[in-house]
C-alpha cells in the first residue's frame, strides 16, 4: 500500500507539473480567466465594471454571490443544511443517560474554581461583542468583506464558545435543538422565499429587480441591493444553526447532554 500510494502520488504530481507551464504566468491581467480570449471579454470583467450600476453594491464578491450567481449560493446553503441533517442521522441517539466513557472534566478544587471564574467572566464579557460583530459582518457585507457565510460562522462560534466556557447544556439552554433545526430550515425558506416572490410577480426565480413593487421606497436597482441583504440573512441563519448543530452533536456523541 505504501509503495502504491507513493507511485500514485508521484504520477499525479508529474502529470500536474507537466501542465503547469501551459498556464498564464502568475498575476497576468490578460490571462484567459482575467481578460478573456480574443474579442470575447471574460465574464469577470462584466462583474467588475457593471456591478455598481446594476446593483449599487460596492463589494463585487457579495453582489456576484447573492445576485448574479444566486442559484449557486442557494444550493450551497442547501448542501450545508443537508450536512447538518446527515450528522443528525449518523450521531444523534435518543437513549437515556449513559455513564460517560471519560470522566467529565469538572474540577472542584480551589484552583479549578479560579480557572472557571476567569474563563466564565472573560466569556461573559466577550461573547456579546462577538455576536455584535457577527451581526455587523452580515449587515455590512455589501460594503466591506463579509456576508452571510462569515457572519453565520462567527455567530455559530459564539454559541460554541458558550459551550466551551460553561458546558453544553448551558449553550443548549440558549439555543436548543428544536430552535437550531427550525432556524436552519427558516434560513433556506427565506432564501427560497425571495426567489418565489419574484416568480409570484411574474419574473424569473431570484430575479430581484421586480421586488421594488412590493418594497417601499425602492427602485429596481436598490431592490436588488436590499434583496441581497435579505438572502444573506437567510444564509447566516442556516450557517449559524448548522455550525452549532455539528459542534453539539460531535462534542456529546449525539446525546446532547454531557459534552464539554
Amino acid at each position: 500500500m505504501k509503495w502504491f500510494g507513493l507511485i500514485a502520488t508521484v504520477f499525479t504530481g508529474i502529470l500536474l507539473l507537466s501542465a503547469v507551464p501551459d498556464f498564464a504566468a502568475f498575476g497576468d491581467p490578460d490571462s484567459p480567466a482575467n481578460g478573456g480570449l480574443g474579442d470575447h471579454p471574460s465574464v469577470s470583467q462584466y462583474y467588475i465594471t457593471d456591478t455598481y450600476t446594476d446593483t449599487k453594491v460596492p463589494n463585487i464578491v457579495t453582489a456576484v454571490l447573492a445576485d448574479y450567481r444566486g442559484y449557486d449560493t442557494m444550493f450551497e446553503t442547501v448542501v450545508i443544511f443537508a450536512a447538518g441533517i446527515a450528522i443528525f442521522a449518523i450521531l444523534r441517539s435518543f437513549s437515556g443517560p449513559v455513564a460517560p466513557s471519560h470522566p467529565t472534566a469538572i474540577d472542584t478544587s480551589v484552583e479549578g474554581d479560579h480557572q472557571r471564574i476567569i474563563i466564565g467572566t472573560t466569556c461573559r464579557v466577550i461573547i456579546p461583542v462577538i455576536q455584535l460583530f457577527a451581526l455587523y459582518v452580515v449587515a455590512h457585507g455589501h460594503h466591506s468583506p463579509g456576508g452571510g457565510f462569515q457572519g453565520g460562522v462567527i455567530l455559530g462560534a459564539s454559541f460554541i464558545l458558550v459551550a466551551l466556557a460553561k458546558d453544553l447544556s448551558a449553550a443548549l439552554g440558549r439555543f436548543s435543538e428544536k430552535r437550531y433545526l427550525a432556524l436552519g430550515s427558516v434560513g433556506i425558506l427565506i432564501y427560497a422565499g425571495f426567489g418565489l416572490l419574484c416568480v409570484a410577480l411574474e419574473r424569473n426565480f431570484l430575479d430581484y429587480e421586480i421586488l421594488h413593487r412590493i418594497m417601499p421606497a425602492t427602485d429596481p436597482i436598490m431592490a436588488r441591493s436590499h434583496s441581497m441583504l435579505g438572502v444573506e440573512v437567510g444564509v447566516a441563519f442556516t450557517v449559524t444553526a448548522i455550525m452549532f448543530a455539528i459542534y453539539a452533536n460531535l462534542s456529546s456523541k449525539g446525546r446532547l447532554e454531557q459534552g464539554f
Binding site: 466513557s101 460554541i160 459542534y247 460531535l250 462534542s251 456523541k253 464539554f260
Partner: peptide, 9 residues
C-alpha cells in the same frame, strides 16, 4: 474545534 471535539471522544 470540530476536530478537537472528535479527538476528545
Amino acid at each position: 474545534v470540530f476536530m478537537i471535539a472528535t479527538i476528545y471522544h
